[in-house]
Design a protein around this nucleic acid. Structure first.
Lengths: 202, 202, 202, 202
DNA sequence: TCGTAATCGAGACGGTACGTCGCGTCTTAAA
DNA sequence: TTTAAGACGCGACGTACCGTCTCGATTACGA
């Protein structure tokens, strides 16, 4: 579906062009939004023939996805979440950081673009979940697992569900602008969800 | 922003055309998806001039939104959620129903279309939240308020947050296809969130 | 096949655009030649959308043909050839004029373009023969008929053939550059062909 | 301009590829016409890299010209025209054969392609006149010269002009489809032109 | 006999133009 | 005044070829 940055890519492919395309795509989506993002413009900005894009990517969304992936990969991969021993404090920290990221105007448009494109294209969604979503979710689950071992979270909790309970409310508020996306909201989510995750007293 | 179905509409406006347009829009978005939905096609299917659409709606998204609104309004507005006295059972019922609705292939594409359009267009989002999202949310809050009165939920809980904790996970799984959207998932969400909402024992 | 300049054309068609297109086409073919003449460039030069060309003409050649036709029609239609009573002198005059025209650098490229396009496209050829070639041929035949009445040309001569005998050699030399296209050549053609057309002495 | 089939060609050149290219070009031009003939398709059909074509020919027209030349050369070069002593009969025979050839569907498209390409490209035209046209014209002039010696044609006739008078009308009718290209037309041309070429009685 | 340099097939590359679709605006004629 | 119809200027689509440019893999000299 998308290019494999590691592994044996077709030897003839131009790495220069690939990078220029991903860069141009990310820039442009931030400038004009996803709806007005055109392959034509990406090619022009990247100094590349349109065919070079069509040759290697099946859709606008796939290009955008690779652009995100490149960014996530080039930046050091955060290897773990903070673990101070206090799960409530750590989660508040992470959720507040997530709020900041979603609120950052540089990422707002591109991230919306990627998410809505993923929503429409099941094939892209599979890639997205596999290559971007899951690795991050894994980090979050690790931290929760650590809290489980420390007895802060009940041992029978399904961590996949737990992670979604924590982050989905942020995602929805951001996506639909259905309410203010503030640190306070993040704190409230953490407090309530953690209360539900705690081991039963009896 | 969008047509006002009740109230003093321009007297010369053709109600027949309006209905035909909304109907055609809803049908088409289900057939070809939002990306390939064109004003041109809506007009053709509705047997209407393009200008008639441009005259009354500011965007494709607005037409789609009105189409949803018409559907939601024509169907009797559910005026209240079930209240058996058992909040857990009632919520499981409602969330399972939500899962069914999101899973229904007749609504999948149009609903995705509306949600992603809302995600991109803040003006449309305001309308959406005001006219579709809030009324439904109000019903859900009512049921939670009743549970609060019955002592099943702590009295200091912010019901807006509570509703989002319950439904956002479904929304996210559906939107990003990040996991199976099953009744079991709905039950797990209800169980955990309710545990967090319950009054503290001490 | 091509627009009908007189008669009930589709009432909605823009006459301004039509003229701009034909003008641009004629200019451009003279500047860049037929091979590098593009619909894209014609549209741009004419300040017109490409679709407006595709809507009304089936091919590049048809546009060019109409451009020629407009020129031939707008200029006063030569209604008759010179008739001094001396067929040899008159024909030499006409053939020399033809040589001049074919040699004129302003008409060389466009005329080649039209002729080669006609050579490839039978439908266009029919139009060409009917609307451009035949009227001119008719004038030439008229002059020959007059000579026939005057006894300068045998009465049993097929005038269609006669006209072709006179002009085809010029056409071929011009088309294939197979020899110098000079007044002298024109004179030689007239002399020899007329000799063949004269009434038998016996 | 074009490859020199005899003489010291670059020793490393692949004769196999050359033949495959010329063959493919001739086939394709007959199948799709000159306008849609592409180097890309010739290379593919010939099983050859595009560069191999660009290395040895300057243009599509040059390839086509060489293809014709190869055909004309491979078939034994007709070394002389029939000479029964009756110039009228012999010419009718030759012109009728020319009509047949121009009418042959296998040669129609390729020959049109070559001729129109020659019309547009002066450099190619020079080659064409030199290597294809002139040799054939020479044969025709030889036959006329023989008739001149036999007193069937006036001694002061310019044979170059005479040949063109005879063949240009066929060429024009074929090229522009301006009239039926029949044996009768050929006969009429021969009759009239010969009448003009005959020695003056007085 | 063996480099080694030219040529080969293949096909990616930056481009131009294709012919089509849909945009949002505008004009027309009917109701 | 609104409507259905649809032409208009425009911009982007996804495709076909252009002519140039690497890539190995032959291949036929000349050292």
């Amino acid at each position: 579906m998308t290019s494999t940055p590691s592994g044996p890519r077709p030897s003839r492919r131009s790495e220069t062009s690939r990078r220029a395309i991903l860069g141009a795509a990310f820039e442009l989506v931030g400038e004009v939004g996803y709806a007005k993002l055109s392959i034509e413009a990406i090619a022009a900005r990247a100094g590349v023939g349109k065919q070079t894009i069509y040759r290697w990517w099946p859709s606008k969304g796939a290009v955008l996805f690779d652009a995100f992936l490149a960014l996530a990969t080039d930046g050091q991969a955060d290897t773990t979440l903070p673990d101070t021993g206090d799960i409530a404090a750590d989660l508040k920290h992470v959720l507040r950081a997530t709020v900041d990221e979603l609120t950052d105007p540089r990422f707002d448009l591109p991230t919306r673009a990627l998410n809505t494109e993923v929503a429409h294209d099941p094939a892209l969604a599979a890639d997205y979940v596999e290559r971007l979503d899951r690795p991050i979710k894994e980090l979050k689950k690790q931290r929760l697992r650590s809290a489980q071992r420390a007895g802060e979270i009940a041992s029978d909790v399904d961590l996949d569900v737990a992670v979604e309970l924590l982050f989905a409310p942020l995602f929805q508020r951001w996506m639909l602008r259905s309410g203010p996306l503030t640190p306070e909201f993040a704190d409230a989510v953490v407090a309530t969800v953690l209360a539900g995750l705690r081991p039963r007293q009896n």
